[in-house]
Design a binder for these strands. Structure first.
Lengths: 183, 183, 183, 183
DNA sequence: CATGAATGAGCCTTCATTCAT
DNA sequence: AATGAATGAAGGCTCATTCAT
């Protein structure tokens, strides 16, 4: 009989614990040793659950994307109009700006270190599809544009904290979209 | 004329030569040794002109931002309407998408390695101011939003090459803005 | 019949299955984990049957040496003259050159990792004795020389595939020996 | 003006100093750190002179092969008959048996770790050519056979110290060859 | 001014073995 | 008997920077 450890459950626990560590230092700047120590296991154990840093991070992305989509959907699905949904989404993102900024930076950093576009592409598409679903926006270009704005603002505000906030830009964007659709 | 001039001229030449190397490998992934070798000088010489990798890169940013603003301004200043200017800008960026994507990635990477927000903030503000100047957009929030869209699209397309292009989104954004302003 | 039999039978089965894995990667380059996985058991089970990688390999050597001696003897014992026997032996080895080269490499690798000379010495002596027995060569020096030639050629051809083949050298050696003995 | 170090001379000095370390522990079992420490430099310095452990070893092989060929040639070139030359060569090798055994083991170990056959092939061919040149043996197969015997005996005696010595086998081989050629 | 040799901490990853279950 | 989780030292190699010349 094997040691009683639910491999998969424990793996996800390790993933969860590792997010903060990645977020704090960035993908390329935190070492597997640091992650292991921060989580409270040996490097050997870490490699027992994940074959490489790259795969560890990929799995982390999949996990948190899933959670984030659930949370964002919960926020906006109860609302009526697209206008409200957009404002609400930007509001939600604004409230957790630090968290989402860290994600963007993490993704970019990961992309730079490996060729690996796959996970990021998949992640982006899942976000866009989920957003289209719950916002009733049917034009992919518009959905894409809105997501671009989010990433762009997060980045901009990473560099310049005084730049316009997500909430403010959310309202502006919602108005622009209304005007455009009402045309 | 004192030697200062030659020193300065040579410094800028080194900067110019180093851009491609940074662009090709990313800020964190190219070493000072590789840069030196690629440029054709010794590491000692590189450190003679730039006190650190960080400073070298800061100066590089300042240089290329200046050049890019000049080029972008030249593209759009001759046009009449804001609508045309936006479309033209996105067109310009689309034509050199790879180049501008590399820049965004470079900036993010630099930001992650050092805490150094200063240069990036300054750079962003210079871009926004120049854009407001030449596009006749007076609302900083709108200008900011447009720049956000650009960065966001570049990033998105880094991950998913099939995502909507800068040119297409430029047209959509221009229409939305027109509708919004004509309200 | 006690369980001992099953235990022993299973042990030999594990040995048999592990040879290919050792051969493919070399003694030092394959890990116990890889062997276990390749065989289809857990590392724990492997260590249940063999106290260490070293012992596992020792037992493996004993097993395959026994098999190889049987096969080689079968090849040459039916022949009449020493001359024919030598040619036949080299022919046999040539046909399975890859297999025997792997063995030599494995032995050397094992010798280098541990100081352990014992098994290898025993193995070599068993081979020489068996060869003297079945080839009717009574001078140990001559038998030894012939075996040296075999190992030497295998090694030489490991480095230089164009080097003279076992078969060709077998004929040359047989002629030299005939000339020497006929003197 | 650069630091006054004759790069090439120093490189060869490092090579010379590293041989004993390789010989003592084997190619795969000594680490670059251990070599660096043993030589008295930092790992960084070692990597300044050699791009990798593999290349370091390749260069080491080339160096010592050159030296060994010179020494072996000096030993046998003054002699008259092929018979004497062979005996003399085996005598020479016997006197430095430990040294030459280490080389064989090193080569095998290196071959196992990398695919890299190139250097070893080149080295072997240089040895054979030099031997043919100075021994007046014109048949490549015979030269090859003699070299095989040497490697084979070294290996055999690595495993079994009581096995027949190089010197003894040299005499036997010389006689066999004489008989064969006199036929 | 310019050179490039030198540093040594740190990177990701692997390993034989142990032992609780 | 059998499992596989856990260990942590050690592997090859890179890096920004310093400094003697």
């Amino acid at each position: 009989m094997p040691k009683i450890v639910d491999h998969d459950r424990y793996r996800k626990e390790l993933l969860r614990k590792s997010f903060d560590l990645f977020a704090k230092k960035g993908y390329g700047s935190i070492s597997m040793r640091q992650i292991a120590r921060g989580i409270g296991v040996s490097t050997g154990t870490l490699y027992h659950y994940f074959p490489s840093k790259e795969v560890l991070f990929e799995q982390l992305i999949e996990e948190i994307t899933q959670q984030d989509i659930i949370r964002a959907t919960a926020e906006i699905e109860k609302l009526e109009t697209t206008d409200e949904k957009i404002k609400c989404l930007f509001n939600f993102l604004d409230r957790e700006e630090d968290y989402f900024l860290k994600q963007v930076l993490l993704y970019v950093n990961f992309y730079q270190q490996h060729q690996n576009r796959e996970v990021l592409k998949r992640t982006y598409q899942r976000c866009r599809d989920a957003f289209m679903e719950s916002s009733k926006i049917t034009d992919p270009a518009i959905a894409s544009l809105i997501l671009s704005v989010i990433d762009g603002i997060l980045l901009q505000r990473a560099f310049d904290r005084q730049s316009v906030s997500l909430q403010q830009q959310g309202e502006l964007l919602a108005q622009m979209l209304s005007a455009y659709l009402d045309q």
